[in-house]
Amino acid sequence: MEKENLKEQFTHIPGWGVDADWENDPVYPMRDIAADDKSADWKRPAQQTTSKEVQRSNERPEHPAVFGDTLPPTGLSGHLRRYAFHYSESKYRHWLPLLLADRINEVEGVIADVKSGFFPNIWKERGYQAYWKYDRRKLINKVATVAAVSIGVWMLIRRK
């Protein structure tokens, strides 16, 4: 392909071909392979310390130098999270308890809110004002569907 011809053809696109490497195939400078000394023995940064409980993947022998220590596990969801971290990242026994813990944690969050005297404003937290403003019909359909399904399930349960 003629470089100049192509450049002319794409003058309407600012920067066309500026990062193309016409000599090299493919263009892929993803890794600086020369820098890979295959070593796990780099000069480590200073170690962060904490008094909080911080989970650690069992695929590494120690905490990294820096870590997040927000939101230590608590309650039932916390027990599940601790259980999950006994297993490696390749196990369902790691991920599925974490997903379940998230759903339980949501309920724990509502309970904690109510216990502290705060009643969550679900309408506001779900940003329904935006829906109401820009797509009222869809919101009404959504609410009606949820209500209909809930009533249906409730009636089924009552019949039993």
Binding site: P45, Q55, R56, S57, E59, R60, P64, A65, F67, E89
Partner: peptide, 10 residues
């Protein structure tokens, strides 16, 4: 980076 995430190695 291997020095910034305690909870997953990926």
């Amino acid at each position: 980076c291997h020095e910034s995430n305690a909870m997953a190695t990926a």
